[in-house]
Design a protein around this nucleic acid. Sequence first.
DNA 1: GATGAATGAGATTTCATTCAT
DNA 2: TATGAATGAAATCTCATTCAT
Lengths: 234, 234, 234, 234
Amino acid sequence: MRSDYPDRQPPRRQVPVRAGGTPAQQRDLRAQGRRTVVRLLDAGLKAFETIGYAATRVDDIVRTADTSHGTFYLYFASKEDLLAALARECATEMEALADSLGPVGPGAEGRAQLRTWVQQFVEVYRRYGPVVRAWSESQVSDPALARLGQRSLRRITSKLTDRIGEASRPPGVEPEAAAFAFIGMLERVNYFVLSRGLPVDDAVAVDTLAAVLHTGIFGGRPGRRVPAGRAGRR
Amino acid sequence: MRSDYPDRQPPRRQVPVRAGGTPAQQRDLRAQGRRTVVRLLDAGLKAFETIGYAATRVDDIVRTADTSHGTFYLYFASKEDLLAALARECATEMEALADSLGPVGPGAEGRAQLRTWVQQFVEVYRRYGPVVRAWSESQVSDPALARLGQRSLRRITSKLTDRIGEASRPPGVEPEAAAFAFIGMLERVNYFVLSRGLPVDDAVAVDTLAAVLHTGIFGGRPGRRVPAGRAGRR
Amino acid sequence: MRSDYPDRQPPRRQVPVRAGGTPAQQRDLRAQGRRTVVRLLDAGLKAFETIGYAATRVDDIVRTADTSHGTFYLYFASKEDLLAALARECATEMEALADSLGPVGPGAEGRAQLRTWVQQFVEVYRRYGPVVRAWSESQVSDPALARLGQRSLRRITSKLTDRIGEASRPPGVEPEAAAFAFIGMLERVNYFVLSRGLPVDDAVAVDTLAAVLHTGIFGGRPGRRVPAGRAGRR
Amino acid sequence: MRSDYPDRQPPRRQVPVRAGGTPAQQRDLRAQGRRTVVRLLDAGLKAFETIGYAATRVDDIVRTADTSHGTFYLYFASKEDLLAALARECATEMEALADSLGPVGPGAEGRAQLRTWVQQFVEVYRRYGPVVRAWSESQVSDPALARLGQRSLRRITSKLTDRIGEASRPPGVEPEAAAFAFIGMLERVNYFVLSRGLPVDDAVAVDTLAAVLHTGIFGGRPGRRVPAGRAGRR
DNA sequence: GATGAATGAGATTTCATTCAT
DNA sequence: TATGAATGAAATCTCATTCAT
């Protein structure tokens, strides 16, 4: 068995609004236009994923979307404008996710809830990882976009800070710092697993994350510890 | 009191070798040349810190270093070559740091050792953060440089994996995944604190990180937990 | 008193033919089509007025005309084709105006006639100024259109040259050069007043122009001169 | 005899400062760089002259200056930036010219002075005509540049307004409107003569302008009028 | 050793015009 | 008749790198 937990029904997440960028928002699109927007968004996300935001050329995006440069600029003002459109989608999902986290108790149930939440984070991140990274790196020059990122992060960590504050956490754990540790750990592990080929099974990663967060931050009772040396590397 | 631990004497770290890039290594530099190399390395690091590796132009570097384009190429073959030179410095420090981590016991002493180590990580990261990030993003095209990054990361996580495997960790914590969680959490929190203006005191962040890692990964006994709601947000 | 002259009945000018461009002339339009042509012509004139012919985009025109790119090309072959349509209207009016100038005597009556003519020029220019300017700048690539402009100008100046030649002008005034001075002065002053916000009342400008032209070109007797310093700046 | 006036010694005009655009002003150029700036300014002026500001491509300029696109942007931020550099030169000359106009008396001497001034205007315009025209058309988007144009025009017409106000001008001539008529007439006639191939000899044009301005605006006594019909077209 | 100048390949962006509905 | 979508040629602009002094 790869995971200590049974699979849970993931709550259905609503389809994100696939809106275009600045130029597209100044007129209303018909079906064909909306399809093109979606193709461009998908192509952009894929290119950011594959070669990174900075290295992506508009040319890479339009080639993947099977359209022309002219068309790209019909819907987006620039590469950064497309990133912004994706970022808005991502922010919506991330904030909904943050809002869905309930109190985390110290027992097995709390841990299971945490694990479910981590699992959902993984799913969102699997889609929007490159956006999150371009965002968190100083790679955006548009201040509005940077602010959107700050606000989103703040909103998520603020919710986490509250939940951590409610729990009977280990001594030395300051809630706000812990909130950033929480989200930072999730982000990086997902990045390593998804993009950098960390050879760890998804479910194992989720279990580990949930366990570390629960015990290390929320004061979860670990139960009987694994004796040293058992269940070693891979 | 901001920190649970007394300040410890940070072990003296050796001064890194400030070598130039490929062109500089093919001849031997006099004092003036060596000074120019150092100015360029510092300027590069600063620029990467401020505007990110991808957005940094050679022009930004030479302006900060108060020198010229021509001079830059006298010592470095390219922007990436300068990154590589910084990366070699960084790798040296990071690997030395990895090697310095001894076994981490479940008691107060283990936790103190962990905290010292985290503190040292913070110091190295404060200097080389931008290099680490450029490295971890898919922002390098030189395979040798990419390999250097992979190797360094692997060497650190492998050491961490060993130390985690030795400890009697909480159930669900798989050592290798936990090693990545460990390093990822450190990296991101430092990034947030140093570059993104996370309003958390350094010492508090270090305490929190040490506490989470010790309890959540190394099976540290937390002692009496902080009751819920106490010592809340800032 | 703002003007030295009573208002005169401006002679009724016929409504210009609002024909479309090349594509429109190859079929016959129904009422709806004709309305669209008029909307496009007006929108074009307005855009040329506001941002200049060169800077005007087809998009500016169709947005103002509240129609689409596709529709534009249903009636005009290009932006220049629309300019040509406006230019034909303008040429018709300008040449009719030129033909309407009778001999200008040196007395008060000659001056009044001149003033009336200047007034009519103002009215035509108020409408077609941007066309005249696009025309006079080397901004047209269509040779036929350029020729139309040359011919119109020539026809007007030739008429003026004749009228000036008939008059007993001041020494040094060569009729043809004076004709260009005449029309150039009118054009620029109107441009300054209408487009560049020259803070001079219309009637005052017309009076001044008529006075300068009459005395300076047609040898008009000024009567008693205004003593220096009187009726100074605004 | 082509002109009614003997040639006068034109007052030596100082060489204009040939400064580069925004990028060039942020560093100091050496001799080679300054030479390149001059080549680009000259090439730009020539291209604006030949094909008009709007139609000129940066490519036309660099081809004439025998250099590369890259070099162009080393010294100018854009085509408009080069226009601005030329405009600053032009404004300097025009304002100096405006300042040099003394009181214009009604006799032969006043007329001669006016003629000399007109002659100098012709010379400046011969050089900067295209700049003046690009300026006066709504062809600039940079507000600072537009303001420079307004200010220059205002400064010139304000000086002219004063001089006209001092003179005992014909009735109906309002000084400020007349100042615009003055400058507008000069500008357009020069434009027709220089760029549109008006077949009038330079000196004849200058004579005519001086005569019209002197008699029509400054109340100059024309002396014996030329009888109608004499000295007709060409 | 140092520098400013120059380059040109390649990226971004614009926009007149055509097309499919 | 009308339209929004699409196109691609051509323009603008950037910037790592080389060169001449």
